[in-house]
Amino acid sequence: MIRDYGFAVFIALLSTLIFIFSPKWGDDFRPGQTLKQEFVEAKVVEVIANHIQPDARVPSIMTGKQVFTAEILEGNEAGKRVKVDNPLSRQHNVYVHQGDTFIMMIRDTPSGTVYWAYNHKRSTAIYWMCAAFMVLLLSFGKKEGLNSVVSLYFTAALIIGVLIPSIFAGWNPVLVTIVLMGIKIVVNFILVSGYNRKSICAMGGTLLGVVAAGIMAQAFGEMAHLSGIYLDKGEDVIYLAEQPIPIRWLLFVAIMVSALGAVMDVAISIASAYNELQITDPKLSPKQLMIASMNIGRDIMGTMTNTLILAFAGSSLTTIMMVWGFDMPAAQFMNMPVIAVSIVHALAGSVGIVLTIPLTAWLAHYVIKPDPQTVLEHQAS
């Protein structure tokens, strides 16, 4: 039992240690908070006034102003009841009823303490959804499902606990990302497929594919005069760092992280296909195996490139709606930074998927060798 789950347990413990020690390391270069504020749970005791009406354009949203009393449920002021003025707009719409629990922001200002309805309490729904996902994954996947959960946990630890603090620390984001993604790739395939020639081949194909995608994004991004500053919140993070952030290279980082999952899927599919074909018919030459694997890869390529492009299209849906609504000419919308960044991301990730197929098949030719025992069994039959 311990032998079967030993590596997964080790990776889970390592991920936990990263989450524990990363905040202490990050404190050295994380910007200090200029505002004294805290976020706590609070409960609506009584709604004093409701000066609200349905929004003219979005009738399901109530706008106007509420006044209510709330009891603070945690923190230094737990048990205290305060009066809250709650303006409601389309963007900030924390419309509450008596008995609702919400997130309150408590901020100390020169003119006194401000109590504000910051947001609905959404964490409960998110935690229940995560729990449902875990139950389904473990129920149907069993050991492989558990390994998938550990792999996701490790990915979060690397990105949140190492990659992001490293960028704020001013480290070279390209080198850090390649090293971290390489570690992630190795750990993921050992957890999911075990340590064997097939996994080694998929590891190499994945790393080459995501690096190619990152280079493509960076090269064509710079040709289009784009940089990480045009990413969502790209300009805002500049002001968070106490030292200059190498914002120029964040396009490379973003595309490597976003394309990794799809590229891993393609790489293991090609490596598995090569391996299974070799086992099924050991008489096939390496060239024949490569051609057959790439033919399988062509079928995968069509769906996976669509998957990646549709994922970016979904994340940019409202922007696309704005382009359509304003009837923008191509010369206008194709040159908008937000559109250009999305297109570069989608195409660079798709290029990574396309290149992963021949790269993995080529690696399989050198890495995946026929098992002599399998060959003898086939000849005997």
Rank of each mutant, 00 (worst) to 15 (best):
residue 274 Y to V: 01
residue 274 Y to N: 10
residue 276 E to P: 06
residue 278 Q to D: 09
residue 278 Q to Y: 08
residue 280 T to H: 03
residue 281 D to M: 04
residue 282 P to H: 04
residue 284 L to R: 15
residue 284 L to P: 08
residue 285 S to L: 02
residue 285 S to N: 02
residue 285 S to Y: 04
residue 286 P to C: 08
residue 287 K to C: 08
residue 287 K to S: 11
residue 289 L to Q: 02
residue 290 M to H: 02
residue 290 M to N: 02
residue 290 M to L: 13
residue 291 I to V: 12
residue 291 I to F: 08
residue 292 A to F: 09
residue 292 A to Y: 04
residue 293 S to C: 07
residue 294 M to R: 07
residue 295 N to V: 03
residue 295 N to G: 04
residue 296 I to D: 03
residue 297 G to Q: 12
residue 298 R to H: 09
residue 299 D to H: 03
residue 299 D to Q: 08
residue 304 M to F: 06
residue 304 M to E: 09
residue 305 T to R: 01
residue 305 T to M: 12
residue 306 N to W: 11
residue 307 T to A: 13
residue 307 T to W: 10
residue 309 I to D: 04
residue 311 A to W: 01
residue 312 F to I: 11
residue 313 A to N: 01
residue 314 G to V: 06
residue 315 S to N: 13
residue 315 S to C: 09
residue 315 S to V: 11
residue 315 S to Q: 10
residue 319 T to F: 03
residue 319 T to D: 06
residue 320 I to W: 15
residue 321 M to W: 10
residue 322 M to I: 08
residue 324 W to C: 03
residue 324 W to M: 06
residue 325 G to R: 10
residue 325 G to Y: 05
residue 327 D to S: 08
residue 328 M to D: 14
residue 328 M to F: 14
residue 331 A to I: 05
residue 331 A to D: 03
residue 332 Q to A: 13
residue 332 Q to K: 08
residue 332 Q to G: 01
residue 333 F to W: 14
residue 334 M to K: 05
residue 334 M to V: 01
residue 335 N to Q: 04
residue 335 N to A: 05
residue 336 M to I: 15
residue 337 P to L: 07
residue 338 V to S: 03
residue 339 I to E: 09
residue 339 I to Y: 15
residue 341 V to W: 13
residue 343 I to Q: 03
residue 343 I to W: 02
residue 345 H to M: 12
residue 345 H to Q: 13
residue 346 A to I: 05
residue 347 L to N: 00
residue 348 A to S: 15
residue 348 A to C: 14
residue 349 G to W: 15
residue 349 G to R: 07
residue 350 S to L: 03
residue 353 I to P: 02
residue 354 V to E: 00
residue 354 V to D: 00
residue 354 V to L: 15
residue 355 L to P: 05
residue 356 T to F: 00
residue 356 T to V: 09
residue 357 I to T: 09
residue 357 I to F: 12
residue 357 I to E: 07
residue 359 L to Y: 11
residue 360 T to C: 04
residue 360 T to V: 09
